[in-house]
Design a binder for these strands. Sequence first.
DNA 1: ACAGGACTTGGTCACTTGACCAAGTCCTGT
DNA 2: ACAGGACTTGGTCAAGTGACCAAGTCCTGT
Lengths: 207, 207
Amino acid sequence: MGDSTGVKAARRNISADERRRQLVAAALRVMKRDGIAAATTRAICAEAGMPHGAFHYCFHTKKDLYAAVLASDREIDLDDAWPEIRPDASPEENVRTLLSAYWSQVEADPGAQLVLYELGTVALRDPELQDLPQIEHRESVEKATGYISRLAKEAGLTYLREEGVLADLLLATLNGVTWSWLSHRDDARARASLDQFAGLLATLVRA
Amino acid sequence: MGDSTGVKAARRNISADERRRQLVAAALRVMKRDGIAAATTRAICAEAGMPHGAFHYCFHTKKDLYAAVLASDREIDLDDAWPEIRPDASPEENVRTLLSAYWSQVEADPGAQLVLYELGTVALRDPELQDLPQIEHRESVEKATGYISRLAKEAGLTYLREEGVLADLLLATLNGVTWSWLSHRDDARARASLDQFAGLLATLVRA
DNA sequence: ACAGGACTTGGTCACTTGACCAAGTCCTGT
DNA sequence: ACAGGACTTGGTCAAGTGACCAAGTCCTGT
């Protein structure tokens, strides 16, 4: 109303790249809230506040969107939630607090985890998307390796196995516990499994 | 041709229950081969060699079929593939051979595992199906507990933790390793994780 | 200023999918 | 034998869905 140009209002053009980002974000929101099946091109555009026609201007095909989402869907990140590690505490205790920090993030957003599995199954079935889970998995292992190595530094300990091997197993177990938890939804039970595993991992550590 | 009644051929009526079984089996075949998204009512009927109309005579709704498939989709079974356990071998070695026997079954039919995750995600999103993963999970834990306890008996060892707790963690890790393997498809790497885990489990055992 | 490309929008299309139904055919109990 | 219910079949329907397009509007380089 304050604008003297009147009704025409603001139709500012946005770069296609920016729109792509918005669509990916909107798609992720819809998927988390209503599941991947509900994430139709129309629902995504509506969530992003765009007309439906915008979709195929930004993405040639819906598969392209999936690819973009998969590439953007970085999973849980501890960089901003790194717990306090005490060199004087037992290794088991330190491992436990680290896993607990990770788990808090999982518990905070179950939908995000579920979307990860939904996207994974879709990608694993589609020949055109099959490499993406592999890439994502490699990046996860690298990130986990980084955390493991940081833990060693801060807690002042050494591993009896190669860090990559530990990261592999750790990642698998975390994924498995998450999957189980999505099924039974028993927080205590999931944390119990995690604590058990922390105890086992501490076996492979020398202070 | 040998039938004197001629062209009319065999139109034998089958009980609805039997048809339901056939449809569930056909659905599982289609899902394993082409993914859950390809398992349309038509595709399933075609796979089962039935006309499309038969579907909604046997199942009121497609969700009912999902429920039936989920209920029937018993996962990996070691009863017919139980390995030889030697009381004179080390606990770690025995755990390892048990996990290896399990893993051979996973490797033999990757599609079956993927379908499990696909069905899981679908069920977890649908309020009407949400209890099914929970039930399935409980049954899995019970079965795993049975195997763990059988291992103890045959190998002559005792656990330092409650068997249910071990089963919970074991199940999670197996699931996680499977998921990772579906992504990277590196057989050796999956088995390496499993061997590591066997070593850790052996920590919780007393001969 | 203005040409030309980047962006925007609503509408349309071919196709699939789950659901349903009416008109049959078979089969069992009496 | 035969009534009545269980089973069978092909066809149809409404509701989406991804894809595409033509006619615009905006904006930047020259």
